[in-house]
Design a protein around this nucleic acid. Structure first.
Lengths: 342, 342
DNA sequence: ATGAAAGCGCTAACAT
DNA sequence: ATGTTAGCGCTTTCAT
C-alpha cells in the first residue's frame, strides 16, 4: 500500500508544494485552514509517514534519547532496580514523543568501544547515564559535545547534571529509626565507595550516630560493595563485635545479611535488627514460606527515570544553562526486620 | 574539538576525495593501503565520526532494531523475564553493531498511537515483538512493509516468523515428572489462553495425562491468566477436588499457589506437589527465611533474545525468505516443591 | 499564506 | 584505485 510516498507526492495530490505539506505536518502557523485540512486528508488517505532519516538530517534532531547502563551482570540480573528505571525512562519518552535507545554493557572493553559510537553526530539527541562509578570509561561521555544527564550524583565530573535520591538522608533516617527503637550497637554494610550512593549512605549512617551521641566504631563498618556474597562475608566479620542492628546499603545485600544471620542462628529482629535500602527485595510482601519482611528505604526509582528524561529534554533545549542537580526524597518503609512491630 | 567535520573535510586533509574516505570507513576493497592509512590517521587525529542521519538517509539503513513490549505493568514489574530478554537482545545488538530501540507500552491506546510511528520509513531496520496476545492492536505491525520477528509463537498471524521455547514439551515434561513421582490427581493452573504460551502449556499438561492413561478432569483445570492473584483464587477453587499436585504455567503464579496452600494449611510437597514454569521465582536458591524451593521448567530466555536479533538480521538481509520458526528446548529444574527429594 | 530552492552529510552508480 | 556526481527526503530561509 505504499509506493514510496514523499512530501513531494503528497503535495502533488493535495495541490500544494512540498514546503506547505511540511508546514502542516510540523504544525506551523500561517496555513490556511482549508489547505491544512486538504493536506491532512491526503496524508490520512495515503497513510503517508515522513521519512525519519531525512527529517533528522535536515533538522539535526533525531528524537532518540540514549539510556546507558554500565556493567549489567550484577544489578540487572539481581533485582528490579534497572527494570523500574527503564520503565520510567520509557514512559517519559513515550509521553514526550521521543524514542529510547538502550545500551547495556558487559565489559569495560565493550564500553570503550561503543562509547564514541554513542556520541556520534546525528544519532542521539541526548544521553542518560545510570550507575556510573569512579574510573568507569563511560565518564568520558561527559566530555563530548552532547547533552548528558546522570542518574546518581557523579563522582568523577561533579559539575555534570544529575537526578538522584537523597542517599545521605535516607541512610540517616534508617539509622535514626533503629536508634529510636533502642538499638545501641548499630553496624553498617556499605555499598561501593567509588559511587556516591555508597559514600553518601555511609555518611548518613555516620551522621545519625553522631547526632545521637553514639560512638563510631570502625569494627562496626564493613564493606559490601553492593554484592550479596560480600555482604554475607561482611556480616560474619561483623558479628564478633556484637552489633544489635545492621544498616545495609542495599536490599540485595540485605538478603545476604539475613542468610548469614540465619546460618549462625541469630534471630531477626530479636537478636539483630536489619534495615535495607531500595525497597526491591522479594521480602516486601508476605511471600509464602518467608517468615519475615524487610524494613527498608524506598527510592522513587521510576520517578527518577521520568525526571531524568524531562530534565535531559530541558538541557537539550537550553544546552548552555547551569548544571541541573535534582535530589528526590526517600521514604522509610517499616516492616518486620527492624523490630518496630515486635 | 569538532568544528563540524564532514567527509569532505577529512578528504581535503588527507588529500583524497570524499568518496575515498567513505570507502575507507565502510571497509570497501580496492583502496591502496597507503591511502587507507593516511585517511585513517586523519580520522583518528580529528576524532571524526560520520553523521548517522546522513548515512541512514543515503543508505536506507539505520542500524536501529526495535524491541516492542506490550502491557508492561504485569510482567516487567513482577519478575525478571523481560529484563533477561532485554539483556539478550541488547547483547546481540552490541555484537552485531546495531542499536536497540525499546518500546514499552502501558495502555492499548498508547499502542494504537505509537504503532504507526514505529513503522515509519527511515527509522527502524526491523522490529522484534514480545509477549503478544490475540487481539492486541500491535498485531497490525505484521502488516507493514518492514521485517518483523515475534518472540513467542504468534496466534493472530501464524505465518509470522518467531522464536520461542517449546511450551508444549516443557509442560509435558513437568507433568510427566509429577506422574513419575506417583502423583495421580494432577491439577493445572493455566496462563492466558489468548497467547500460545498459555495454550501450549495447557496442551502439554493434557498430553502428559493422556500418555499416562490418567483421566482428564475439567475441575482440575483452572484459569490463572499469568496473574498471581488469579492463581491464588484458582487454587482455592481447585482444592475441593483434592489434587495431589499442581502444574502452574508460570513461576509468578506459582507463588500465588504456594501462598494459597500455606493459607489453608496444606504442606508442599507432602500434601500437594507444585511445579512452576520459567525459573524466575525468588525461590530458586535458598533465600533466607524461605523454607522451600520451587521445581520449575527453565526457558533459555536470554538466548531467545539473542537469537531473535540474529534471526531478524537474517530476515532484514533476505526479506523474501520463508518464515522462520525457531523453537528452543526447555529444561526441568528439580528442587523441593515437587517432592522428588522428599 | 505559499512556493522555489538551497542545503543537511552521506552512499553508490558511473566514469576514468 | 580513485574522483565526479546524482540523489536520499526533508527543513528552512528567502522570495513573493
Amino acid at each position: 500500500m505504499d509506493g514510496k510516498l514523499t512530501l513531494e507526492k503528497i503535495g502533488a495530490l493535495a495541490g500544494v508544494s512540498r514546503a506547505t505539506v511540511s508546514r502542516v505536518i510540523n504544525n506551523h502557523p500561517n496555513i490556511r485552514e482549508e489547505v491544512r485540512q486538504r493536506v491532512l486528508e491526503v496524508i490520512a488517505e495515503t497513510g503517508y509517514q515522513p521519512n525519519q532519516a531525512a527529517r533528522s538530517l535536515a533538522s539535526n534532531r533525531t528524537g532518540l534519547l540514549g539510556l546507558v547502563i554500565p556493567r549489567d551482570i550484577q544489578e540487572l540480573f539481581t533485582d528490579l532496580y534497572y527494570p523500574r528505571l527503564i520503565q520510567g525512562v520509557s514512559q517519559a519518552c513515550n509521553e514526550s514523543g521521543n524514542t529510547l535507545a538502550l545500551f547495556i554493557f558487559h565489559t569495560e572493553e565493550e564500553e570503550q568501544q561503543i562509547a564514541a559510537q554513542i556520541m556520534r553526530q546525528g544519532f542521539l539527541d541526548g544521553v542518560i547515564i545510570a550507575g556510573l562509578h569512579f574510573g568507569d570509561p563511560l565518564n568520558q561521555l561527559v566530555l563530548f559535545h552532547k547533552p548528558v544527564l546522570m542518574i546518581g550524583e557523579p563522582l568523577e565530573y561533579p559539575q555534570a547534571s544529575f537526578v538522584d535520591a537523597d542517599n545521605r538522608l535516607g541512610a540517616y533516617t534508617a539509622v535514626s529509626h533503629l536508634i529510636s527503637l533502642g538499638r545501641q550497637r548499630i553496624a553498617t554494610i556499605t555499598g561501593r565507595l567509588d559511587m556516591t550512593a555508597g559514600q553518601q549512605r555511609r555518611q548518613g549512617y555516620l551522621d545519625a550516630l553522631q547526632a545521637n551521641n553514639l560512638p563510631i566504631e570502625d569494627q562496626l563498618i564493613a564493606a559490601g560493595e553492593f554484592e550479596q556474597g560480600k555482604a554475607y562475608q561482611a556480616t560474619l566479620q561483623l558479628l564478633p563485635h556484637t552489633p544489635d542492628a545492621i544498616f545495609v546499603a542495599s536490599d540485595s545485600m540485605a538478603l545476604g545479611v539475613l542468610r548469614a544471620l540465619a546460618d549462625v542462628g541469630l534471630r531477626v529482629p530479636e537478636d539483630v535488627a536489619v534495615v535495607g535500602y531500595d525497597d526491591l527485595a522479594p521480602l516486601d510482601t508476605a511471600v509464602p514460606f518467608i517468615s519475615t519482611t524487610l524494613t527498608t528505604i524506598r527510592q522513587p526509582i521510576r520517578r527518577m527515570g521520568m525526571l531524568a528524561v524531562e530534565t535531559l529534554l530541558e538541557i537539550i533545549k537550553e544546552p548552555q544553562g547551569p548544571p541541573r542537580r535534582i535530589i528526590l526524597p526517600t521514604e522509610l518503609i517499616i516492616r518486620q526486620s527492624c523490630g518496630a512491630a515486635y
